[in-house]
């Protein structure tokens, strides 16, 4: 006994089961990320002065990651098209490329995460705030590289555009001086200290939640696609049509993951 329309389209709906299944699943995913986006907007518009830092993420890296994901989206649809053209070798090539792209994306993302987790925010007893990368830590002091200093009430990760431009100018003139020097801070001068993890403030919280959930989708999708690239591809010999459908369906999921990133990138990195 076989459930009908697992392979062939049902004539009146023009769809096979998994196709409608994945679209329904994606609809629920839209609501999932939609709810996260609304949370983002609500938290952002109700944020008080100094509670929502901007321009903290590395735009070039984010851009590269966007391009990687877009590339993977093309390769995954090309993989499907290759199967339609009966070209299994090409399919293997494109599908493999997709998995590699996914891995690159996750690697870059984890590098970015590490970068944030090692970035420390320190409130000094004198009411100033310093943030920078932790390079050394002893029981008496810590050392931050690339430190920036500003009044504590400006809020975590304060990056006024002016400060930015000054920094760029300084760099253009053969490197900014005080910015690049490491800063040693005695623990006794520190009132409060945290790193830029999700606990640092609401911006980081939503940043890590959104990208983390997205990364889980990337990893899940990559596992499925790696399976279809490897052991799962044996089905091509037995039932090419069903295998092509599977590639199409997993591809649809992958495009959705790409699509989410297309929105995540501007709202988290650029705005």
């Amino acid at each position: 006994m076989e459930v009908p329309y697992t392979v062939k389209n049902r004539p009146d709906t023009g769809l096979y089961n998994a196709k409608i299944g994945i679209w329904l699943f994606l609809a629920s995913e839209v609501m999932l990320f939609g709810a996260l986006f609304s949370s983002y907007i609500l938290l952002r518009v109700t944020a008080q002065e100094g509670e929502w830092p901007t321009e903290l993420l590395n735009v070039p890296i984010g851009t590269v990651n966007t391009l990687v994901l877009i590339l993977s989206s093309v390769t995954v649809v090309m993989a499907w098209a290759s199967l339609k053209l009966n070209n299994f070798k090409k399919f293997k090539f494109y599908q493999g490329l997709t998995v590699i792209c996914a891995m690159i994306f996750v690697m870059i993302k984890s590098y970015e995460y590490r970068d944030k987790f090692t970035h420390h925010d320190v409130i000094l007893t004198n009411g100033m705030r310093v943030d920078g990368h932790l390079v050394e830590e002893t029981s008496e002091y810590i050392v931050l590289s690339h430190p920036l200093e500003y009044p504590a009430e400006k809020g975590i990760g304060y990056r006024p555009t002016a400060l930015h431009e000054a920094e760029e100018e300084a760099n253009a003139h053969g490197g900014g001086h005080h910015h690049t020097e490491d800063r040693k801070i005695m623990l006794s001068d520190i009132e409060k200290r945290t790193n830029w993890g999700p606990w640092a403030n609401t911006y980081f919280a939503i940043y890590f939640t959104l990208t983390g959930l997205h990364a889980l989708h990337v990893i899940g999708g990559a596992l499925v696609m790696a399976y279809f690239w490897g052991p799962g591809s044996r089905m091509w010999k037995k039932n090419p049509e069903q295998f092509t459908n599977r590639i199409e369906v997993s591809g649809l999921f992958w495009h959705f993951v790409d699509l989410v990133w297309i929105f995540l990138f501007p709202i988290l990195y650029l705005l």
Partner: peptide, 15 residues
Amino acid sequence: VALYFMHLIEERQSI
């Protein structure tokens, strides 16, 4: 992405 990669442009009404 939705229209071309996901073939929405030629997809069925139920979707």
